[in-house]
Amino acid sequence: MKKSISQNARLGIFVIAGTVFLVVLLYMIGAKRSLFSSTFRISAQFYNVNGLMEGNNVRFSGINVGIVEQVEINTDSTIKVTMLIEDKVKQYVKKSAVASVGTDGLMGNKLVNINSVKNGSIAHVEDGDILNTLKPIETDEMLRTLNTTNDNIKFITGDLKKITQKINSSNTLWSLLMDTVIADNLKQAIVNIKVTGSRTAIITGDLQEITKGFKNSKSLVATLFTDTMLSSELENTILKLNVSSDKIAYVSGDLSTLTSKMKSGEGTIGMLVTDSVFANDLRSTLKNLDKGTKGFDDNMEALKHNFLLRNYFKKQAKKAKN
């Protein structure tokens, strides 16, 4: 009798283990299909559901929140998809949320994605609501776009490769890389630009006056310069100078913000500064800019010493003295 009791006990364990696994299996699957939690229904109308079936998952911002309960043809151009959604996500889904038919992975099951839209309505969805829809992304179309993108990327990477090769072969750039005072230099450069800018302004003013003087003067030089063609050319020069000084002011403004951002290390630029290539570029740019302003100064100096204008400048200097 003892034997049969332990037999029955073992049989009991066996039966219970099997049944428990069955129950767990069914429950877990049910839980995944949200069959045991309280749900509500919303629907959406699509033009094309791409093979969406009853039982497919519904995702809200990428989280499974329910299943497709019913897919039915509404009219010749709309398919009504009714979804069973877990109650607990009701508070997050707004009336303005947009539903779209998507695919899980590249070849996976179809599913409905529900996404919130920015600045949408604040009201929560309610049972029976109809959501707005997006045209589903079709794999073919996606692949076509991807193909074009790929081609573009191919060219871009080709170009990038060339650029990197060039950068790599340049020693000066690499040495510049080691410099840690880029920001300071930049600042300096801006100061220079500013100075140049203000100087340019003064010089332009001077030049304008010279021209005026030329126009009104009875001197030989003046007659020489009353030649309208020459004077108009001069005027043109001044105009150009004006524009360039404006531009310089603009550039310096930009550079100013750039440096401040760089100092705080934020944003793409901050990140890019640590990027060697960019730093090199920036370096050379700044150098050129420096050279440019210097060149401009030189030009102005040369202009001062020009024999035609030397007189005027002297007069100006005298005026300034007084």
């Binding site: 049969s4 029955n8 073992r10 049989l11």
Partner: peptide
């Protein structure tokens, strides 16, 4: 029960 034991367990 006895057979279930022999067949199953």
């Amino acid at each position: 029960l006895r057979q279930s034991f022999f067949i199953g367990y």
